[in-house]
Design a protein around this nucleic acid. Structure first.
Length: 420
RNA sequence: GGAGGUGUGGCAGAGCGGCCGAAUGCAUCCGCCUUGAAAGCGGAAGACGGGCAACCGUCCGGGGGUUCAAAUCCCUCCACCUCCGCCA
C-alpha cells in the first residue's frame, strides 16, 4: 500500500505513476474519495460513541425509576452507535480494498514504458565464439546424464524435471556457493516455510493482478510461495524492528512454485521456465531513506555471484510497465544463452520501498523513538535456471562442461563429463 | 482425528459485567542521592485512527454475538500446551 499522506497531498504524482505503469489513473480518485468518506464517517461514529460512553456511566449509578428511564435512552444511543459503526466498518473496507488495489509508486528514475523499454545499464563479459555448434542446455543435460525432463513430465507433468546425479550436486553446489557468499556478507541464512497464509501472500503483493501465477491449496487455505521473498517478508510482519545498526538482511533457501499460467508455448524446452525450482533469495529490511543505497548493494552482490560462474551478462533497468505490483524499481541481470543468442534473466532485484511493509505492518523506530514504516527489498543470488547459463557457456567440443573455478570447491569436480 | 487447558503492555503476571488502557514485579528512560556506579527514593513511558489543536475514539490472540455497558458472559476461528489415537 502506498502512503495515504502522499495521496492526499500530491495525487498527481500518484496518477502519473499509474500512467507510467500503463494502469488506470482513475483508481487514484476512487481511493481519494474512499479516504474522505472514511474520515467523515469515523468522526461521526467517534462522537456518538463518546456520548454513549458518558451516558452509560450514569446508568450504573442510577436506581429505580430513574434507572429505567436511562435504560430506555441508552438503548436509543446504542442503536445509533451500532448503525454508525456499521457504516464505519463498511467505509473502512471500501478504503482498504481501494488502497490494496493500487500498486506501488514507481521510482521517477525508472525508465517509463512497457516490457521492451528497459534501459541497458552495462554489459559484463563478452559472449564466447564457438568453433563448434553448441548444444542447448537440455541436450547437454541429457548427454551428461544430469537432467531428465521426460521422467519429470511422466511423474508431475510438463515443466517438471529431475536433476539427477551430478545435476543434483551441481544445483546444491551453486546454492551452497550463494549461501556461503550471503553468510560471509552478513546475511542470516534462512530455510523458510514454502506454504504461507493468505494474508502473508497478499501482503507481499502477489495476490493482485498476478494471482493466477500462484499455487493455492484450497483445502487448507494456504499458498505455495513463488519465491522465499514471501516468507521472508512475512517473517517480521506486525513487528517493530530495531534498525539502528543498519539493514536486517536474510538469505532464504527454498523451492519456488509457479503456475506459469498464460505462458503456454513459451520456453517449453528445458529448465528455463518450470513450475518448481530452487533459489537463494536476498531480503533486506531497512529505513526508507537507505533503500536506494541498499538496492545498489543487492545488485552488487548479484554481480559478485554472476562473476563466480563466469558467464557474460547485462544489467537492465526494468521499465515501469514491467514492474511488479510491489516494486518501485527493478534491476535484472540477464545472462547470455548461446543457443538462444539472447540474454535471459538470472537475477532480479526490486526495491519495494514501504509498499510491502505497510501491508504487513513492519515498522522500525526512528531517532525520536517513533514507529515508522520500514522499506523492504529483495534480490536473487542463485536459482536452478543458472544451470542453463553455466552448461551452455562452459561447454566444450567433446561434450563436457568446464566447471567455473569458484564453483569447483563446492562441486568437487573440474569438469562434468558425459556418463559412460 | 478425539478430550482438556491456555492466550492480557518489551517480558512475567493480576483482573468482581460499569470506578480498567488495565494492579504488581522485572526490564527501559529521566531526576535525586553518590567522587562514579549499584542499591534506595521520586517520576516518565504502549500502538493505531480522527482532529490545526484542546481533545476524542479504537485496541486485553482474530472475528462475531449478548448487554445501556464486555479483558470479564456466549459462539467461532487461529496459535500454543497436556493426554489418547493414528502415521513415521
Amino acid at each position: 500500500m502506498i502512503d495515504l499522506k502522499v495521496l492526499r497531498e500530491d495525487p498527481d504524482t500518484v496518477r502519473a505513476s499509474q500512467r507510467a505503469r500503463g494502469e488506470d489513473p482513475a483508481t487514484v480518485d476512487t481511493l481519494l474519495s474512499a479516504d474522505e468518506r472514511r474520515r467523515s464517517v469515523i468522526s461521526r461514529a467517534d462522537t456518538l460513541r463518546s456520548e454513549q460512553k458518558q451516558f452509560g456511566k450514569q446508568v450504573g449509578k442510577a436506581r429505580g425509576e430513574e434507572r429505567d428511564a436511562l435504560l430506555a435512552k441508552g438503548k436509543e444511543l446504542a442503536a445509533g452507535v451500532k448503525a454508525a459503526e456499521a457504516e464505519q466498518a463498511e467505509a473502512d473496507q471500501v478504503l482498504e480494498d481501494a488502497h490494496r488495489a493500487l500498486p506501488n509508486l514507481v521510482d521517477p528514475a525508472a525508465p517509463v514504458g512497457g516490457e521492451d523499454d528497459f534501459v541497458v545499464l552495462e554489459h559484463v563479459g563478452t559472449p564466447r565464439t564457438f568453433d563448434f555448434t553448441p548444444l542447448d542446455h537440455l541436450d547437454l543435460g541429457v548427454k551428461l546424464g544430469i537432467l531428465d525432463m521426460e521422467r519429470g513430465a511422466k511423474v508431475s507433468g510438463s515443466r517438471f524435471y529431475f536433476l539427477t546425479g551430478v545435476g543434483a550436486q551441481l544445483q546444491l553446489a551453486l546454492l551452497n556457493m550463494a549461501a556461503a557468499q550471503a553468510t560471509a556478507a552478513g546475511f542470516t541464512l534462512m530455510i523458510p516455510p514454502v506454504l504461507v497464509r493468505p494474508e502473508i501472500m497478499a501482503g507481499t503483493g502477489f495476490l493482485g493482478a498476478h494471482a493466477g501465477e500462484i499455487y493455492r491449496l484450497r483445502d487448507d487455505d494456504l499458498y505455495l510461495v513463488g519465491t522465499s521473498e514471501v516468507a521472508l517478508a512475512g517473517y517480521h510482519a506486525d513487528e517493530i524492528l530495531d534498525l539502528s545498526a543498519g539493514p536486517r538482511r536474510y538469505a532464504g533457501w527454498s523451492s519456488c512454485f509457479r503456475r506459469e499460467a498464460g505462458s503456454y508455448g513459451k520456453d517449453t524446452r528445458g529448465i528455463i521456465r518450470v513450475h518448481q525450482f530452487d533459489k537463494i533469495e536476498m531480503f533486506s529490511y531497512c529505513k526508507p531513506e537507505d533503500a536506494t543505497a541498499e538496492h545498489q548493494r543487492l545488485l552488487a552482490w548479484e554481480k559478485e555471484m554472476l562473476a563466480k560462474i563466469e558467464v557474460p551478462y547485462r544489467v537492465i533497468d526494468t521499465a515501469t510497465g514491467d514492474l511488479g505490483t510491489s516494486a518501485a524499481r527493478k534491476f535484472d541481470c540477464e545472462a547470455w544463452v548461446p543457443t538462444q543468442e539472447a540474454y535471459r534473466e538470472l537475477t532480479s532485484t526490486s526495491n519495494c520501498t514501504t509498499f510491502q511493509a505497510r501491508r504487513l505492518s513492519i515498522r522500525y523506530r526512528d531517532d525520536n523513538g517513533k514507529p515508522q514504516v520500514a522499506a523492504t527489498l529483495n534480490g536473487t543470488l542463485a536459482t536452478t535456471r543458472w544451470i542453463v547459463a553455466i552448461l551452455e557457456n562452459h561447454q566444450q567440443a567433446d561434450g563436457s562442461v568446464t566447471v567455473p573455478e569458484a564453483l569447483r570447491p563446492f562441486l568437487g569436480l573440474d569438469t562434468i563429463r558425459p556418463a559412460v
